[in-house]
């Protein structure tokens, strides 16, 4: 995409049929139910996060219904705290939390994943924990009469027994490589 096209894209306030891919979301796991959404707004109103952040669940569901793929690039979908309030209250049983989770799956495949989350996956691969142990805690554990290390994957890794953590690292949560973020840089150069 050339720069002129890019800028035109940015200025455009309207969308055409070409911007939508209605078939894309037809294949997602919870297929038909999403499309029975009546846009009543119960989900947004229930949303704890949405009161303070830009997350507007109803809007995301609407975009899914339309087939608007920009929703996958939308950072808002990562603001859901998965509190399931919308899931509980939706009058059409659409399960919006589930939809958002699934959108995140697609977004991850496209590489739209934050560096922080990448780090968390790294921890899991290296230690088997999303929150690895630190030295202070080791001390405290001893003080409370517990083993220094909990009997989890990490403990057995250090003892050099089995290859399970390696397998874990190898086969689980294979994330797409980090995107080279060229475009913003270019803009800066232009400016």
């Amino acid at each position: 995409m050339s720069d002129s096209e890019q800028s035109e894209e940015q200025n455009r306030e309207f969308k055409t049929d070409e911007d939508f891919d209605p078939e894309f979301f037809r294949n997602i796991e919870r297929k038909s139910k999403i499309f029975s959404c009546i846009q009543c707004g119960t989900c947004t109103a229930s949303c704890e996060s949405g009161k303070w952040t830009a997350l507007k669940t109803r809007n995301i569901i609407r975009k899914v219904c339309l087939g608007d793929l920009t929703v996958l690039k939308d950072p808002d979908i990562w603001l859901c705290t998965t509190c399931f309030a919308c899931w509980e209250r939706c009058p059409r049983n659409i399960q919006p939390t589930g939809v958002i989770m699934e959108l995140r799956n697609y977004a991850t495949k496209l590489g739209n994943i934050s560096p922080n989350h990448r780090a968390v996956v790294g921890y899991l691969g290296n230690t088997g924990h999303a929150v690895p142990i630190n030295d202070i805690t080791k001390e405290r554990r001893k003080e409370l009469g517990l083993d220094e290390l909990p009997p989890t994957l990490f403990k057995y890794k250090t003892e050099g027994e089995g290859k399970e953590l390696e397998n874990f690292k190898e086969f689980m949560f294979d994330l797409p490589p980090v995107k080279e973020e060229k475009k913003p840089k270019k803009k800066e150069e232009k400016k």
Partner: peptide, 8 residues
């Protein structure tokens, strides 16, 4: 008139 279904 407000178009929205109250959540609670």
């Amino acid at each position: 008139f407000i178009r929205g279904r109250p959540s609670e």
